[in-house]
Nucleic acid binder design. Sequence first.
DNA 1: TACATAAGCGCTACATCATAACACCCATAC
DNA 2: GTATGGGTGTTATGATGTAGCGCTTATGTA
Lengths: 159, 159
Amino acid sequence: MATVAFDTHDHASCISTALSRAEAHCDQNGLKLTPARRRVLEILLHEHRAVGAYDILEVLRQDGLAAQPPVAYRALDFLVKHGFAHKIERLSAFVACAHPGEKHVPAFLICETCDHVAEATVEVAPKSLCDTAKAIGFEINRTVLEATGLCAKCAPAKS
Amino acid sequence: MATVAFDTHDHASCISTALSRAEAHCDQNGLKLTPARRRVLEILLHEHRAVGAYDILEVLRQDGLAAQPPVAYRALDFLVKHGFAHKIERLSAFVACAHPGEKHVPAFLICETCDHVAEATVEVAPKSLCDTAKAIGFEINRTVLEATGLCAKCAPAKS
DNA sequence: TACATAAGCGCTACATCATAACACCCATAC
DNA sequence: GTATGGGTGTTATGATGTAGCGCTTATGTA
């Protein structure tokens, strides 16, 4: 379950499950999963890959919705802030979180060829990093890990 | 030595040492540390923090040098490619590498308040990430780790 | 020397990514 | 019912990054 992105799977149910869980989480925590936010999450879930903010806008536009950049960025900010999605800095793009609600250091395997992203679980930041942080009095808030390389599909094509 | 960025130290010698080492490395490997590249590296070393490409351009301009964006980006590409600098994706900015020549996974502690960056050493990618990669046939090329939080100077101010 | 080749540079123009700021709407609570 | 705050829609602009062309310079080759 940690690495759905390079597998085939029951995508429709995977989307609806994630949406339901997001709704439940918002209800429980007094957050509002507004139509715009819900739709953006749905788009991310649908793609199961890193999607740029302007690609999302494109889809919203096709839906006949408002589609100025802030619309997408505000929804994405909300989703990222509350752990429903992550930003892949490396690609300036966003993915739905593969295990929302779980405490984890997001870690990504980014295929350089097809841009698909697998999210791996890293429970805690590496010890050596924590040691360094401690040594210099640095207080870590968030840690992200991004690995780039070739996915199983693309690696053979490159050889 | 891994975490100079939040300490005070002999900055002038630290810069000249790093420059000499870069020159030596280029000589040995048939790389050309051209004036532009050298100057950009010097700027990064001088700052000892994450510097944006356009900030670098600003400095180059003050030097009376050519200062169109590609000038900075080309020099930075070279420096990053050959391990003299790293890009901090999170900040869209660049830092001189704190231990060039050593094989390592670059890992950064980025202060959210002052943008100073400490580079920590992480010898290998976390095991759980490698395990995941292996499980799905993903071939990792490069790994970067970015932690954000508060440095020793800024943490008290926030409390 | 003469020439071919490749790497680097300077530049224009443009593409892409992101946010500031303001007016408006509407749910909620007092 | 009205003040407050969060969310939305919009314009405009800022920040970051790159394609591509022509020129120069270094280097190899004969």
